[in-house]
Design a protein around this nucleic acid. Sequence first.
DNA 1: AAGCAGTTTAAACAAGCGTTTAAAATAACG
DNA 2: CGTTATTTTAAACGCTTGTTTAAACTGCTT
Lengths: 211, 211
Amino acid sequence: MSTKNKILDAAESLFADKGFNGTSLREITSQAEVNLAAVNYHFGSKKELIKAVMSRYMNELSPRLESALTQICEKESPSLIEVFSAFIDPLLSLNEFKVNGTSNFLQLLGRGYTDSQGFLRWFLTTQYPGVIDNFIIAVQKAYPELSAEEMFWRLHFTMGTVVFTMSSSDALIDIAMSDFERELQISDVIRNVIPYVAAGVGAPMPVAPKS
Amino acid sequence: MSTKNKILDAAESLFADKGFNGTSLREITSQAEVNLAAVNYHFGSKKELIKAVMSRYMNELSPRLESALTQICEKESPSLIEVFSAFIDPLLSLNEFKVNGTSNFLQLLGRGYTDSQGFLRWFLTTQYPGVIDNFIIAVQKAYPELSAEEMFWRLHFTMGTVVFTMSSSDALIDIAMSDFERELQISDVIRNVIPYVAAGVGAPMPVAPKS
DNA sequence: AAGCAGTTTAAACAAGCGTTTAAAATAACG
DNA sequence: CGTTATTTTAAACGCTTGTTTAAACTGCTT
C-alpha cells in the first residue's frame, strides 16, 4: 500500500470520528504509520487532504448516482419513494469499494457541513453539480405542484435529516440494537429514513400565511 | 453590563458562528472587551463556559416547552402538526429574552450535536430530561399506531432535520432571500419545517421487509 | 558504479491554544 | 480612613497545531 493511500485511509476514519478540525496531522500520520511531513509532501496542505478524501468517494459515487436518478426521470410519473430509493444502491455500493464505505462517507458529509464553515459545501456544489441538478429534476417530476421555494427548503431539510442521521448512525444503531434487541445495520437505517424524507418532501403545500 | 454577561454574550454569538472548538477564548474576550483570564476566573474553564451559555437558554426555554407539550397532551386526539407547533411560541419567545435568541440557540444546539463528540447531548439529556419525555408522550398520543422502534428512528430523524437546518439557517436564509427575492426570517424557516417533520413522523408504517 | 529523481526522515519553525500566576486596581465594609 | 475581599490585568506557562527545511535514503537509468 502506497504512503498516499495509507494517509487517505487513516485520515478518512479519523475525520469521520472526530471531524476535520478535531483531527490533527500528527494523529493521521501516526495511525497511518508514515512520517508527519508526508501529508504536506503528497497533498500540499491539510485542506487539500480533506478534498482528496472526499473526492475519492465522490468520484466513485457521483456517476452511479447521476445515472440512477436519470433512470428515474425517464419514468412516466415516478413516486418520491422511487426517487429517494435511487440513492440506496449507489450508496451501498460504497461498501464494496471500501470497508465501512457508506458509513464513513455519510459521516464525512455530515462533518463537512458543520465543520469548516461550509467550505465543503462549496466544494461539493461546484465540483459535483450534476448530482444535485439531477436530484432536483427527479423530485420535480415526482411532485410538480411543489413550488420552487418549498422545494428549496424541503431538499435542505432532507439533506439535514440524512446527513445528521448518518453522521451519528453508529451511536444510533447501538442504542436501537440494545433497546429493541435485534441486529441492525446501516442499510436498515437507510431503509428507515426513506419513508420519512419521502413523506416530508411530499407533504401537502401549506396554505400560505402572509408574513 | 457585568463582565460575566459580556463574556456570555460574546461567547454565544461566536460559538453559534464558528462552533465550540472553532472559537478561541482570545476571540471571545476580545469581542467582549474583557481580559483573557476573566473566562477562567468567572467560569473556571472553557467547557464550563459552554455549559453556562447553553443553560442560560435552556432555563428559559425548558419550562415553557414542557407546559406547551403538556397542554397538547390534554387534548382528546392531537394532530402531529399541533404537537410540533407547540415548539413555535416557546422558541420565538427567546427572541424577546435576547436579540437573535431563536437563531443563536438553535445554531448552538446544532453545534453541540456535532462538535465535542456528544458531550452536549449528554448535558441536555441528563439536565433537561423533562422536555424529551413530554415530547415522546405527545407524539405517542398523536400517532398511537407508531411502533416504538419506528418512533425511535423518526424522532431522531426529526432531531436531525431541525438541528441541522437551524445550525446553517443563516446561510440558508441568505440563499433563499436572493433566490426568491423576498424577506425571510428564522420564524419563516420554523413555519416551513413543521409540515415537513410532521409528515415525516406521520408517514404510514412500512410493510416490514424481513432482513 | 555514478548520477539522479522521487521519497522519506528528524528536527525545527512560528503561531495559536487553554490555563495559571502574582501583582495591580477596584469595591465593600467596619 | 484603613483593611479586607473581590475583580482585573499583563505576562508567562507548557502544549499542540500546520508547515518548512535540509539531509538521508530509495530505486532506477545510463
